[in-house]
């Protein structure tokens, strides 16, 4: 190659590779939505589906099968006490809508706002655990000293893999801040 050609070729290679670098930087960011989609499909990070995301068609109730659902909650960085439902464990039939009630108590005088973030285990159950109504859909506000009942209504999809016998629904309650993305 002549010197001119080499220069031209160097510039071309540099151009392509720089594009690739920019692309890979973008790919790093693209991993964020990709990861969400991936988690939705596999339940990888234990985020459960909401009914708005899945079909709203009523499910047939599978009386032949019972699944145990457990409830727990953690509070983190907000002056609240949150009690889990009175029954720790509940046996439900797949397809049947059930409502349980968490109870939040404000421990300070001022008004506070919290946001509950749900997590479901085992991972493979997560996307079959559908919440039709949940206090975690919006931020919850408590005026000083107030107590509040916080219901959640859920349905276990009959498509839940047969080997799953127990599902745990856990919430972590955080102080709500402005730029919250919607959790489900």
């Amino acid at each position: 190659m002549t010197e001119r050609n080499v220069r031209k070729s160097n510039r071309r290679v540099t151009g392509w590779l720089s594009l690739w670098v920019v692309g890979m930087f973008g790919f790093g960011y693209a991993l964020v939505p990709l990861y969400s989609v991936f988690c939705e499909i596999t339940g990888l990070n234990g985020k459960s589906a909401t009914l708005s995301e899945v079909s709203a068609a009523p499910l047939t109730i599978d009386k032949s099968r019972t699944v145990t659902v457990e409830f727990t909650v953690n509070v983190s960085g907000i002056p609240w006490r949150v009690d889990r439902p009175k029954t720790v464990r509940l046996n439900v039939h797949p397809g049947e809508a059930t409502t349980v009630i968490y109870e939040a108590h404000s421990l300070v005088d001022a008004m506070t706002a919290g946001q509950a973030v749900p997590s479901v285990t085992p991972a493979k159950a997560a996307r079959h655990f559908r919440k039709t109504e949940c206090f975690c859909f919006t931020r919850q506000e408590l005026v000083g000293g107030e107590s509040k009942l916080m219901p959640v209504t859920f349905v276990v999809d009959p498509k839940l893999p047969a080997e799953v016998k127990t599902i745990t629904l856990s919430y972590e309650v955080y102080p709500a801040n402005e730029n919250l993305t919607n959790n489900s």
Binding site: L17, W20, V21, V22, G23, M24, F25, G26, F27, G28, Y29, L31, V32
Partner: peptide, 13 residues
């Protein structure tokens, strides 16, 4: 060039 930009993205986040 495939891996370093991804790290750059991660630490930027």
């Amino acid at each position: 060039i495939a891996a370093m930009p991804v790290l750059a993205g991660a630490v930027t986040m």
